[in-house]
């Protein structure tokens, strides 16, 4: 419980996380508006979910910043591990608190995208997807330990490699972690599996590695 309170405080007092959440929501609002307009003459995909296809980048960044902030200058990771030396429980609590903090942001962002396009039924699924994506990004950044390289890796996978693989014929799309962003029933299992795998890998490295 103490660990959860400490981790929650850490997340809530990091200005970059607030800024990222705000910008992500604003970008979603702008895109939802753009889709509402554009769709009149040329449909570009499901307007309820399409804006989230872009602004999930904000959630990736959110996860990266939350995890990488431990390893930035100043050496906060030492303080963290001196105060909470049991690494596996710490890792679990970290994931849970980040999830708890992200959930409301994800819900508001998802609603901003889905409601204007009449896709209210997608809101819970989209909220869960964005929250899991944040956790996946945090897990990756926890292994990489640096914000910019982690962001390059994740953004490159989600926005360059992913679309390229998806454009090819064949069933590979259902196995990518971000298919659920545009096609929830098809990709949900992949998102959950990837996130769980990334978290497990991060837990293992966090437990084994010298700080």
């Amino acid at each position: 419980m103490n660990v959860a309170r400490a981790e929650l405080r850490k997340l809530l007092t990091l200005p970059s996380l607030r800024l990222t959440a705000l910008l992500t929501w604003a970008a979603t609002l702008l895109l939802a508006y753009a889709y509402a307009y554009a769709d009149r003459d040329a449909p570009l995909g499901d307007a309820a979910l399409a804006p989230l296809g872009y602004t999930q980048a904000g959630f990736l960044v959110l996860g990266v910043l939350a995890a990488a902030s431990e390893y930035e200058e100043g050496g906060q990771i030492h303080t963290t591990l001196l105060a909470m030396p049991r690494r596996l429980p710490l890792h679990v609590v970290k994931a849970l608190t980040l999830g708890a903090v992200t959930l409301p942001v994800a819900a508001v962002t998802a609603a901003t995208s889905t409601l204007p396009a009449g896709g209210a039924t997608w809101t819970p699924a989209a909220t869960a997807y964005l929250t899991l994506t944040t956790l996946l990004a945090a897990a990756v950044a926890g292994v990489v330990r640096r914000a910019v390289p982690a962001a390059i890796l994740l953004l490159g996978l989600y926005f360059i490699v992913g679309p390229l693989l998806r454009a090819r014929p064949g069933g590979i799309a259902a196995y990518l972690p971000d298919t659920a962003a545009l096609d929830p029933p098809r990709g949900a299992a992949a998102t959950v599996a990837w996130t769980a795998a990334a978290l497990a890998l991060a837990a293992l490295t966090f437990h084994r590695r010298d700080a």
Partner: peptide
């Protein structure tokens, strides 16, 4: 080093550490 993240105030840093224990 200080062991604190640069964006946090001294008090905010000490308060999360206090909470952890």
């Amino acid at each position: 080093g200080s062991g604190a993240h640069r964006a946090r105030t001294a008090r905010a840093h000490l308060r999360w550490v206090a909470a952890s224990n």
